[in-house]
Write a protein that binds this DNA or RNA. Structure first.
Length: 534
RNA sequence: GGUGGGUUCGUAUAACGGCUAGUACUCGAGAUUUUCAUUCUCGCAAUAGGAGUUCGAUUCUCCUACCCACUACCA
């Protein structure tokens, strides 16, 4: 039909965006970009009671961190973003700022017999609900019960007129037709049929705050904004028949968007959907960014926990979608190329925190040494380490001054051992500060006279080594020396490692000695001797 | 309760009627390594249950079970 692809992500600013919401936004974004179309962010703030300050800014910032940038919508400063591709202005993108638009559409439905005025107060409805519940039934405002309630279908015309003018808590409800089978097609789920007898007369517009409800606002805006595909969460599937009926009532069937309903993200263990609590309990974030609520409770965010946005996006993309082959690592560009609604999984996906970490580990390895070094330097500063611009890999342990090259060399050696940059300090602190204590178990295992006497001989060998100190120069001769004497390699080396690292783990001895230098090496050998005996 | 959706190793998924049900994470074993880590090799482990259609069913149909969503003047 040649319509330009236009999709939207339409969050309501009632709190921080959950990672499931980010996934929905991501799929919309991928779909739009693949088709060369537009990705729109629309803020659905039609519920004045649930509005949370800062939530909108949070949502936009979170998406931007992920690299999900809208072609149209609101930016993180609240300013309108609009592309040149827009054929006519679609702004504003906040439904609260569009309130003037909706009333006439609601009235149009009434004029054409698709909707009616309802004057039942909240208390009255609560009462009939309570009565039904007492009888073990569920009250539904539908074609049967509407005949017994106060609305423009049951009241005389004059009374309706009077109430419209004199009262301010009435609503407009959709008049759901009787016994009609709605035939729908979902891009992911296929053909679905629902009988309208099982549906209720949903409120479309509220006089009290002069705002539409989700259903009306959603259909009107999707129409006005020329949305071609609606990709949203599974929780909307039950209201799809209503939405179909609304498009029909407005006479917009020919431009009705196609629908795709995504399954939910489930909690890692047990049943149910992923919630904030699961993250707190199991120690993983459920939010893209850190969030502090009105009560002052702070929730973890992927960004603050040290995840790379590329890793976060990648793991999210693979939760409920697959490329149809074994590829697991995808950049945003690759995702845009490979994405397809055909490969979306119908069932809910349990989130696996282990796999999330694995993704970050993989992306960490992919980063350049420079980039990782820049991320490591602020952490070093927190530990009182000064990083200078001096040339070469030089270390001054007394002044705690190390060159950029020194840090970079370390990063290149340790990055394979970490999942997060935040782990670098624990992994490599001994390359900046001499160990002050020695791991008990390792000490008991290796620091024995028959071992350390040999270790000190090896230390003498290293100290008197007259070539330039590099790993390449040192490694071969060192090994030959120990093997030549037929000394037990593992035991001797671990005595040295205990002295240099404080434990029997860490880099190769040649690496460490090359980095810290002769002087520091000697000092550490002396210290362990004084401390543990020699 | 009603309506709709779903169900392949522990987890994420592949196999769009046809090999021995593949891959990744996790876990286990081995190899390499001066330790640790890495790397490599191998291994454990699944079609919810039952009918039917078919030469043949993970795939199609029906029933049962279980899970999820919705059932607001919330989105």
């Amino acid at each position: 039909m040649g319509r330009r692809t236009r999709v939207r992500f339409a969050p309501s600013p009632t709190g921080p965006l959950h990672m499931g919401g980010v996934r929905t936004a991501l799929y919309n974004y991928l779909y739009a970009k693949q088709k060369g179309g537009d990705f729109i962010i629309r803020i659905e703030d039609t519920d004045s009671h649930r509005f949370v300050p800062g939530a909108e800014e949070y949502i936009i910032e979170a998406l931007r961190w992920c690299g999900i940038i809208p072609d149209e919508g609101v930016d993180e400063n609240g300013k309108v973003v609009e592309t040149a591709s827009a054929r006519h202005p679609h702004a504003p993108y906040r439904q609260s700022q569009r309130r003037g638009i909706y009333r006439s559409y609601a009235e149009q439905l009434i004029a054409n017999g698709y909707a009616y005025y309802a004057f039942d107060s909240a208390e009255e409805l609560e009462k009939v609900r309570g009565e039904a519940e007492a009888k073990g039934e569920t009250f539904i405002y539908n074609q049967t019960t509407r005949k017994t309630l106060r609305n423009s279908l049951t009241l005389p015309e004059e009374e309706t007129k009077r109430l419209l003018e004199e009262t301010t808590d009435w609503t407009v409800r959709f008049k759901m037709p009787e016994n009609l089978v709605v035939k729908m097609d979902d891009l992911i789920r296929g053909h679905i049929e629902v009988n309208t007898d099982t549906l209720d007369d949903k409120v479309l517009w509220k006089r009290a705050d002069e705002l539409p409800t989700y259903h009306l606002a959603n259909i009107v805006d999707d129409h006005l904004m020329e949305i071609t595909e609606v990709i949203r969460g599974e929780e909307w599937l039950p209201s799809l028949p209503l939405h179909y009926m609304l498009y029909k009532a407005f006479g917009w069937e020919d431009t009705m968007p196609r629908f795709a309903h995504l399954s939910l993200l489930l909690k890692p263990v047990g049943n149910g959907k992923l919630s904030k609590r699961d993250g707190d309990k199991m120690g993983f974030p459920v939010f893209p960014l850190r969030w502090t609520n009105a009560e002052g409770e702070t929730s973890h965010g992927y960004r603050e926990d040290g995840y790379f946005p590329e890793a976060f996006v990648n793991l999210l993309a693979m939760l409920g979608w697959n490329p149809g082959n074994d590829q697991e690592m995808f950049s945003m560009e690759e995702l845009i190329k490979a994405f397809s609604l055909d490969h979306i999984v119908k069932s809910g996906a349990k989130f696996n925190p282990e796999k999330a970490k694995w993704y970050n580990k993989e992306y960490l390895r992919l980063k350049s040494d420079e980039e990782l070094t820049d991320l490591f330097i602020p952490i070093l500063k927190e530990h009182g380490i000064i990083v200078t611009n001096g040339s070469g890999a030089r270390a001054d342990f007394k002044k705690k001054e190390f060159t950029y090259d020194y840090v970079k060399t370390i990063v290149s050696l340790i990055k394979v051992r970490a999942t997060f940059v935040s782990e670098f300090w624990d992994i490599a602190s001994y390359l900046f500060v001499a160990p002050s204590s020695f791991e008990e178990k390792d000490t008991a295992k290796f620091w024995k006279e028959e071992n350390y006497t040999l270790a000190y001989k090896v230390a003498d060998f290293i100290s008197s080594f007259d070539g330039e100190f590099t790993k390449e120069n040192l490694e071969g001769p060192l090994e030959e020396f120990i093997r030549g004497n037929e000394w037990p390699m593992g035991k001797v080396m671990n005595c040295l490692r205990l002295a240099l690292v404080g434990a029997s783990s860490g880099l190769g001895i040649a690496d460490i000695v090359t980095l810290i230098g002769k002087e520091e090496f000697a000092s550490r050998m002396e210290y362990i001797g004084k401390t543990l005996g020699k």
